[in-house]
Design a protein around this nucleic acid. Structure first.
Lengths: 414, 414
DNA sequence: CTGCTTTCTTGCTTATCGCAATAAAGTGGA
DNA sequence: TCCACTTTATTGCGATAAGCAAGAAAGCAG
């Protein structure tokens, strides 16, 4: 069902202005780690007086603190401000098919402790285990400054209701993850699709260029291929929370009619299993179907970098298909940054070359000449860090009215 | 070059709140043609007092007028309000390679007069001709209520600067269309890419379902294939004003490396020329290359509906490719509405069937089961009407802060 | 020590909204 | 006919928060 809330159409009260401007200020801190009040006024266009008042409020709440002074440029030096990570913590959990990882992190996105365990088969037990980890990990961080628990899961997640609408595993479909976990931990819980949370954290806490991008595509290659889309700083979810199904893109025609996972879709040509299969063909070692494809793919990447010809060719071919898909998406969305995640990136020199070969050669096409293509900053940790960042999102978003294709962000009381 | 202005990062003053709320109210009038003040308060969440004050302001400016009363439901009946189209007019021009069309239209998007002529070969002469048409058409509509001139052109348009950065025809590349025309007509000029303006008008003035959609894709099939993307009611342009290059999407792999218009891209498989070529192959009549493909394609559509087997097959094959491309885009963006424009839609029953065949059969996939696929509401007039609507855009957008991937909308003084 | 520059703070004015009281305009039952 | 009741519209009041400008604070250069 379409989410009822549309982005546009809601009125705005003067009382909400402060919230929006607070968010603007906090976003600036993510982009430029430290700023003076005068810097903020210049970047945001707000008056210096307003900035002063907002900063006073944020310091009162201990979100921001003064950290040293600028060098003078002939006048009074500005006092440098930055996010104060010592008072706010959050816990994030990344629930994967086999493994669950839980971590504590700070407002600035630094991970300070983590643990992991094999994901219990039954959903209730898995949630119990997450709740246990939450309690043990969060114990050292005083309850009054713990923002809550963020969860990254595979599947179609309604982040507003906290329900996993279509699980990767049928047993999880329809599970009210938020409600269930809030009951267990007694803190606010935020749930998001794993790829989307990774995309968001890569945007907001990855390299500065990412935070400056207008249109970022985060591409995750593992058993399948998924895409997280961040447009104008806002995560784009789509009306059914289903945007980014990159793996279903057909890039090689084969006769017959549509359907899911039919021959020719990106996922069947560029993914860990595809890499393993192709390598098996080229090297003549049929692969055991039960094998864990991630580990095997890592091996193949290693071999490719060592000069093994079959591995090299397999990596190049798979990356070439990925490149076709990425070029399609970039043509369509005019993206200015593409971030690739997954074990395939371990052979980055080969991968990036094969991908770029699929870009048009025309030197006049700004879209491609300015495109920033790079491997994931947080490597395998993006989804987990994304989960950690979820409970902080409302602090940075209060009053945001951007386009997510969907109502978003709980409006947690401050 | 990336446009300097980012959507986020700008502060907001309480004085801008009124502008935003005005815009919310005006958008509601586009969605529900007529409303009472109480209706507006309910839909927007604003208080009744605020709505009253905003409506008073809009009536003063003659943008809105009272038109009858509701039936009572047991209390005082509401006075119905609607946009007042009698006081505001704008002129739009659609400049195509061979033909230029110019029209006058109202605030509500009704065309009231139009003319067309062969596009002069040299850009300055073409702009002269547009300016002449502007003057003759706008004469009957008093100067004080003429909003300006909107222009739809092919190519990469920076709608903020009004410069045609990459023209479809090299002679037009780099032309400062806005500046040139403003000098000639003495009214504000707004320039936009033809597909984008068509997409926008299809969204805002087409069927009500379009205005209610969260993620609309407008697909224009002619010599090439282009896409206009409207997300959350905002046109998505991309950081280089280049989003929507749908025709470059590769959907049929062929060996070799990337580039523009290489075999396998959508445009080479689904477009008017592709239809003509395919029909020529199937029917055995080689087509004269000089032939105008639009007229020929129209013929083929007609033949297909009449039962000509070769035509039927050509239309179906071409639509099948189009369907693959559309399915790819819908998977990626989770679109809830797709509008198709171009002569191909004259064989709609065949076309829509072939497209739908490329959608996944799975009944559980909300994205596709809820997808609204239809032919363009304005048929061949979308780009022209879009041009007419451009000068009104700032009235409906004042203060909007949505994500366009780009700074947008001139802030014309009221 | 005296200008000069830049940063930060604070009081005043202004815009605007929500709330609530009130007016207006209808229905329906006694 | 009249009175209670419902829904719509208007208006005065109080509160929020921004911009502006005056001024304090804190450095540098001579």
């Amino acid at each position: 069902m379409l989410n009822a809330m549309k982005t546009q159409g809601r009125g705005l009260a003067p009382q909400q202005v402060r919230g929006m401007n607070r968010a603007v200020v906090l976003q600036l801190f993510r982009r430029f780690r430290q700023l003076s009040r005068a810097d903020i006024a210049r970047h945001s266009g707000m008056s210096e007086g307003t900035v002063s008042r907002i900063i006073a409020e944020l310091m009162q709440e201990r979100l921001v603190s003064e950290q040293g002074v600028e060098n003078s440029t002939g006048g009074r030096p500005g006092t440098l401000l930055r996010l104060d990570s010592s008072h706010f913590h959050a816990v994030g959990a990344e629930i994967q098919n086999w493994e669950t990882r839980v971590a504590v992190g700070t407002l600035e996105g630094r991970m300070v402790a983590s643990e992991s365990f094999r994901t219990p088969a039954s959903p209730p037990k898995a949630l119990d285990a997450v709740a246990d980890a939450f309690r043990s990990l969060s114990r050292p961080y005083g309850a009054e400054r713990l923002e809550g628990l963020g969860v990254s899961v595979r599947g179609i997640v309604n982040s507003e209701s906290g329900v996993l609408e279509v699980g990767n595993n049928p047993a999880w479909t329809g599970l009210a993850v938020r409600a269930q976990l809030e009951q267990r931990v007694g803190f606010p819980v935020y749930v998001e699709n794993n790829i989307r949370s990774a995309a968001l954290v890569e945007y907001s806490l990855g390299v500065p260029e990412a935070h400056a991008s207008h249109s970022l595509l985060y591409v995750m290659v593992n058993e399948g291929v998924g895409m997280g889309i961040v447009l104008g700083g806002q995560l784009y979810r789509g009306p059914h929370n289903a945007a980014g199904e990159f793996g279903q893109m057909v890039i090689a025609d084969s006769p017959g009619d549509g359907g899911q996972d039919r021959p020719g879709c990106l996922e069947s040509l560029a993914s860990n299993p595809a890499l393993c299969d192709r390598y098996a063909e080229l090297s003549g070692n049929p692969r055991k179907s039960s094998e864990e494809t991630a580990a095997r793919a890592r091996q193949i990447c290693y071999l490719a970098l060592q000069g093994d010809e079959a591995a090299r060719q397999a990596v190049t071919e798979v990356s070439r298909y990925l490149g076709i898909g990425i070029a399609n998406a970039v043509w369509g969305l005019d993206a200015d940054m593409v971030v690739i995640d997954g074990v395939l990136t371990e052979a980055w020199p080969l991968v990036s070359k094969a991908i770029r070969n699929q870009f048009p050669a025309d030197r006049e096409l700004q879209t491609f000449t300015h495109l920033d293509l790079r491997p994931c900053f947080f490597r395998g940790d993006a989804s987990l860090l994304g989960a950690v960042a979820l409970p902080f999102a409302h602090i940075f978003n209060t009053g945001q009215r951007g386009v997510t294709g969907n109502g978003s962000a709980r409006n947690g009381g401050k």
